[in-house]
Design a protein around this nucleic acid. Structure first.
Lengths: 343, 343
DNA sequence: CTGAAAGCGCTAACAA
DNA sequence: TTGTTAGCGCTTTCAG
């Protein structure tokens, strides 16, 4: 026999208790509570009353075991301390709670293996997962999507629905902004090599450059994080660029710090543009010009896409879009200014 | 009969499959996988081999149902977007993963009701919970602790184990620092009214004041968040204080921004000290002098305390301490300086 | 509309 | 050391 009950010794209330109390069968209780329509209104009310009275709370493991659905979904982030994910987490959290799902937070620590392993192991106890910034190769990701319903964030893989923040389009705006300030030598500070958004952003930069018959340079890759700031800043200065667009704000803030140390003035000597508009971008020094991304919304959208897939019990309805693009906009603050006069 | 299986149609592997494959009973498989000691080495190896071969993954709902333990613990924070919790979450996440537990993140949105309700509902599907910054009255909290194993963070309630960051002790250091710079009129900027740490911090301030035969003033309460910065800053200025110690960094950063708008120089005109040393405290302008709290460590410690309580199957061993105090230290940055010369 | 009954996958006595 | 046997609490046929 299983464990003796918790410290208080009170055996938890089950549907059987309710059944006994109301004189119906347990199955009727189950129905009354789940498919209120398919039960006599009078008995249903008696059952509901008893449930309230006894402070009944359904056991999710039991439910999960017999129904196969756990009402839990995992949110995988590569680094919980990266402020970008705060927004994501808040968005998913909000939307999941509203739909009665539990959120399992998983930090993959930037390693693809952990990601696969975790998901594989938890596959049974999850209804689905949201991958925010996966480091997985496309084929692994596609394979995983066969095992468990998946939605990716900022990652575009064939066959896997995704919510994408359209930062690449924003890169265009950012570059035009810099060009309008007279900058011609613009560098892109690259984030982690295998990051999908990173490639997309650089690609967008090149497109702008081509359109203007210019050549933008690229430095990096750098791990995303303030710690890479010094190396990145030095690399940018070395190119002679008068402005740079940085993979993300975290790295940009690190760069700002380093430039300060080296007594390079921003924006007088060099302009800096970040991406994402994370917590801190508005109060660093100088406040960062950046691409404001609808991060929370992205989290919410990802959840909606996932849940709609789950609810659609059988119909492979082509109704839901496989990709949702979220627009960004440029927020100009203090880190960008006119190109310095030629030396 | 339950749902037909997932899209792939493959029925998941169970211990029965392993039992069949190896010619032993299911219970033996269970034992081999859980209490490796209590099974013949040879058969155990055959079983393990088969499990690997078949890519067996245990079903946590089933486990939970029969054993009563879910290996999931909830972490409740009052606001996922508050950077203070990033650290906490990272700490708990790390320690939980290491122990094979899943972390359920719950945002209580600062409302005590949601807190109770959530915990009460999930009680069955959790092995325990960590309450970071609970808004619950002591008695509710104590009652809840009877329903489910609890550990609080920064909250001291009789009978409930807790990890406490000793910011109050740090307040002493901060105040001495300001006094040594010549400040005599120091204000405390109060955080949310019903916050336990807030009261503790103000209490510590008063103790210092008494020791020096001074009177410190208090302004507020203000909701913790940068949004309260303007009101708080104005209130401080209104007191004529030359320095202030602020409930937390978030609020302090908001104050810094407002002072800047009003062209009050920091630290020339007024000194500001924060608490916690969150993300951003080092790169805001000016960088914030603050009490550096071991936030991640607090998360880890809270988890250890909880898990050690859970493991101790029956023994009410008085070994584990009911309270762990974590020391903080003062980090002096650019927001504090000598008292301005008298006007 | 309701009851009886079979199981979901696993653990934990109890025997053997 | 291993097998047998009950369930854990719930959902879901299948009869009535």
């Amino acid at each position: 026999m299983p464990l003796p009950r918790g410290t208080t010794g009170k055996r938890p209330v089950t549907i059987n208790d309710i059944a006994a109390a109301t004189g119906v069968a347990a199955s009727t209780v189950s129905r009354a509570l789940n498919n209120p329509g398919r039960v006599n209104a009078a008995t249903r009310e008696r059952i509901e009353a008893a449930a309230r009275e006894l402070r009944y709370v359904p056991s999710s493991p039991a439910r999960a075991l017999s129904s196969g659905r756990t009402r839990a979904i995992a949110v995988l982030v590569s680094d919980v301390t990266n402020p970008f994910y705060f927004g994501v987490i808040r968005g998913t959290q909000e939307q999941l709670k509203a739909s009665g799902y539990a959120q399992l937070l998983i930090d993959t620590e930037d390693t693809g293996e952990l990601e696969i392993e975790m998901l594989h192991k938890m596959r049974r106890s999850l209804d689905g997962a949201i991958l925010a910034a996966s480091r997985l190769p496309d084929r692994d990701l596609a394979a995983l999507a066969g095992e468990i319903p998946l939605v990716t964030l900022n990652r575009n893989v064939r066959g896997v629905p995704s919510a994408i923040i359209d930062t690449p389009a924003g890169i265009g705006q950012a570059a035009e902004h810099l060009l309008s300030l007279g900058h011609r030598d613009i560098a892109y500070v690259s984030g982690p090599q295998r990051s999908w958004p990173n490639e997309a952003r650089w690609h967008a930069m090149r497109a702008v450059a081509a359109r203007h018959r210019l050549t933008f340079t690229r430095v990096g890759p750098f791990p995303s994080g303030r710690g890479s700031g010094p190396a990145a800043a030095d690399a940018v200065l070395n190119t002679g660029a008068t402005a740079c667009i940085v993979f993300n704000d975290l790295l940009a803030i690190g760069i700002l710090q380093r430039l300060r140390e080296r007594h390079i003035r921003v924006p007088e000597d060099i302009s800096v543009v970040g991406c994402d508009d994370i917590f801190g971008a508005d109060f660093c020094h100088p406040p960062l010009t950046t691409l404001t991304a609808p991060i929370e919304q992205a989290g919410r959208v990802a959840v909606s896409m996932l849940l709609s897939r789950l609810d659609r019990t059988a119909a492979p309805a082509p109704t839901t879009r496989q990709q949702v693009m979220l627009p960004v906009h440029l927020t100009v603050r203090g880190s960008t200014g006119p190109v310095p006069a030629r030396a």
